[in-house]
Design a protein around this nucleic acid. Sequence first.
DNA 1: TGCGGGAACCGTAACGGTTCAGTACGCCCA
DNA 2: TGGGCGTACTGAACCGTTACGGTTCCCGCA
Lengths: 341, 341
Amino acid sequence: MSNAYNRPDQLSPELRKRVLDTARRLGYPGPDPVARSLRTRKAGAVGLLLTENLSYAFRDPAAVGFLEGLALACEDAGHGLLLIPANPEHEDVAAVHSAGVDGFVVYSVPDDDPHLAAVMERPVPAVICDQPNLSEVDRVGIDDGAAIKGLARHLIELGHRKIGVICMRLARTRNDGPASSERQVNAHFHVQRARLAALSEAFAEVGVDWEQVPVIERFDHTPESGGSAAAQLMELDPEITAVMCTSDILALGALSEVRRQGRRVPQDLTITGFDGIDDAERVGLTTVRQPVMEKGRAAGRLLLDAGESTGKPREVVLDTQLVPGSTAGAPRSVEERWFGP
Amino acid sequence: MSNAYNRPDQLSPELRKRVLDTARRLGYPGPDPVARSLRTRKAGAVGLLLTENLSYAFRDPAAVGFLEGLALACEDAGHGLLLIPANPEHEDVAAVHSAGVDGFVVYSVPDDDPHLAAVMERPVPAVICDQPNLSEVDRVGIDDGAAIKGLARHLIELGHRKIGVICMRLARTRNDGPASSERQVNAHFHVQRARLAALSEAFAEVGVDWEQVPVIERFDHTPESGGSAAAQLMELDPEITAVMCTSDILALGALSEVRRQGRRVPQDLTITGFDGIDDAERVGLTTVRQPVMEKGRAAGRLLLDAGESTGKPREVVLDTQLVPGSTAGAPRSVEERWFGP
DNA sequence: TGCGGGAACCGTAACGGTTCAGTACGCCCA
DNA sequence: TGGGCGTACTGAACCGTTACGGTTCCCGCA
């Protein structure tokens, strides 16, 4: 029976035909994939866990790019891609437990996420993308620190010393407003933590005290968040000459809010992003491009490649690229700001 | 054992704790989801079949919107969403056979797609979105004919009588160029067939002979395709005053090609799209908006709602909306075109 | 003390396929 | 003619779980 479907060469064509005909006559719908999976211990699918509502993943261009790459890798290997419904609000891990997959890709979740813990308990391989940075799991990411340091040095060369920062959520608890340096250091999102730490280092090199640099945190990753954060930042410290955002989405929001207030970019204020999404490049945002699609593909390949033998976890670090757009320029002195150039 | 994990109320907390402790000590990783699925006959996942490479789905904004809605519906029901690797080039339906899912959503595939046939053979429910229009399966879609007729009447009122059409692929075989009316009528993509038929009807009402209307088909659904098709159309019949495209992606490509050639839109040429994607509304394209996200959500709900009892298939038809943008205007007469207004 | 009844617990039979050992049979050659 | 061999096919065990019915145990009541 099994042979008739799966190994045509193992039995005579005539018998095979007879078996198949009979099966059809009896209304047999073909081998049950679940039973097969049970026996062969292969599900033919990869699970994807992300920290946000599933629908969010389709709104964020960076996430969509990642998904595209991952889907590509899965397709190449003939595997399905199972999106796991892990609502960050309900701590319901059942979906992770009941996912019939050969492995997990974990995309950008906080290090204390219960869903992540559930994934780690499952006896299947996992690859973590971006964050968290667990030492015992395969990982794909970029050098967040080096990437944003390049951007920081760019602004420093332009002459900026008084900056403000807008960052994404630092923990699972909502905190829309200034992020204390303690909160920054203890952030549960490794990527944000690394970027902030790198910024602090870069500016320390030119004598800027990080404690004096306002860092505004936003829970929701939307342009609106970026806009309101920019407003808050300018009110908090009108002296700042540059706003560095840890994502393009936030930066685009900030850009439009700043312009709405009548300030010119970059003459009055410099704004930078991070990611290199299409819309950012379209409007000329100064940012860092990271290969989001390639990241997804690398994650998929890492998971599906048999080379699981080596004891220590593998790590793929992809290159990034500084994109000098038109939203960064030299800061104007205070005199210039008041009396013109 | 099973009870300890799944029905805490069926046994004393003390025993439950003992069982769980022992299980942990023995390195038991928790119930196996595949075995559970086999026993309970529930996979907790919905399969999605689309006609294109998986990665395409993440490039087309309309498809992304659909995915978002579908993911939302799945999430609400606690189901996963399995993207099935159905490469349209290889006719390998194994992936459909080995998908452990409770049902399928089929999105916009040709009526002769072997993957679709494989889905129909599986003893699980299915919902078809957009196309094809099989009589025995639940369906979600829009009234393509009525929608594009509205657009056609809009152009007719403006005075257009000589139009050209750019449409998406009509069959699984590549045909980049004019589509004979026979090919139009026999198109394997119901949506395209319906739209072309409706256009022909609408223009017949004002005495336009459809045989004289050039219809350019493009296999790839990209702006580049739209651009080259527009060029071909203008060369084929320089007299046309309007280009109607069956998608926004094609229309945006056509728009930029037409402008590149130095013609003004809508003064020299009217261009229309279909779908209502963000970019289209951003540039003011005259088009028809369809609720893509809602479509995904409706498909998911239809599949997951238990109301499977009724004998005949259910059908959800969503509303569309004419979006009069700035790319449609009154045609200029031949004199005007040559000698100015 | 005996009995009814309910709660707690346990054993076992599917679920549907794959795999592999084992059997039957035909054929060749000594 | 009989032994050996290879091929075609069959049957049974196993994958890990859940559902279900049976058994035990304990308590209350007559």
